[in-house]
Computed example of a mutant assay.
Amino acid sequence: MEKMENAHPSTKRKPSQENSGDWIWSSRPKARVDASKVGKWLVFCSPQQIDDLWVKIANSMDGGELAKVSIGCKVNTAGRDANKHVICVYTANFANKDSVAACLAVLRELGIEDTLYYKTDKQTRTRQYASKGYKSSIYSSADFERLKPTAQMGMF
């Protein structure tokens, strides 16, 4: 795990030790985006992995490669499932597949190897969850893997 003394403020709270039921956020300075176009990659992991993974992602959001392709990220602290946490990594426009792919490429560079799913914020606001029988994503990482995108593709 990286040193915490000079860490970004969002990494000073450990998701595995929080039980408030809220989220820890890390985001770029306010970017102007159309809220109806926002979407996010969903990164699921175990309580044993969440603290280290959150530090990697939040630090990359704070001036690293993720800051170039994402508008923000958050991690749940007390999810519905005690065996699983989720980190949401947001992009400005779900229809911009180059942007979505570039964000995925950075997540891969950070060492995230699992199959990931991408959903729109609208799907979340209308409570479209797989556990409720809905198709809860519009993309999976498999949709982009053969493209071999790079972080240089940009965000917009």
Rank of each mutant, 00 (worst) to 15 (best):
F156H: 12
E18L: 13
D114I: 08
N83G: 05
R108N: 04
E5I: 15
Q152S: 09
N83Q: 13
F156A: 14
W54S: 02
K12W: 06
R146S: 15
V89C: 09
M155G: 04
L116G: 10
A31S: 12
S137F: 12
D52T: 13
V33W: 10
Q152E: 08
I138D: 11
K84W: 14
G21H: 00
S136R: 00
H85L: 10
V33H: 09
Y139C: 07
L116R: 04
L53E: 00
W41S: 02
S136I: 00
G39Q: 04
N59L: 13
Q128G: 09
D98C: 09
F156N: 08
I87C: 10
E2V: 15
K56M: 10
Q17A: 15
A7F: 14
S140Y: 00
A7K: 05
V43Q: 05
D114P: 07
K40A: 04
D121Y: 00
Q128F: 04
T120N: 07
R125C: 12
A92F: 14
V55Q: 09
D34T: 05
I50V: 13
C88F: 03
P29R: 03
T120I: 04
C45Y: 06
V43G: 06
N83A: 15
H8S: 09
V86M: 11
T150C: 12
K97I: 04
A82E: 05
L107M: 12
T115L: 02
R32H: 13
I50R: 00
S99G: 10
E5W: 14
A82I: 04
N83M: 14
M155A: 15
K122R: 05
S46M: 07
Y139M: 07
D62M: 05
K14P: 05
A95R: 15
K68Q: 08
L66V: 01
A35Q: 10
G39L: 07
A105L: 07
T150V: 12
G39V: 06
N96F: 13
Q17L: 15
R146C: 15
P149V: 09
C103V: 02
D121L: 03
L107N: 06
Y118I: 03
G64N: 08
G133D: 04
A31G: 10
Q123G: 12
E5S: 13
P149E: 10
L110V: 04
K12C: 03
G79I: 11
C73I: 05
F44W: 09
V69R: 08
N76Q: 01
E65L: 15
R80K: 11
G79D: 11
S16V: 08
L107G: 08
T124R: 00
L107C: 07
V69M: 06
E113H: 01
G111W: 11
S131D: 09
Q49K: 07
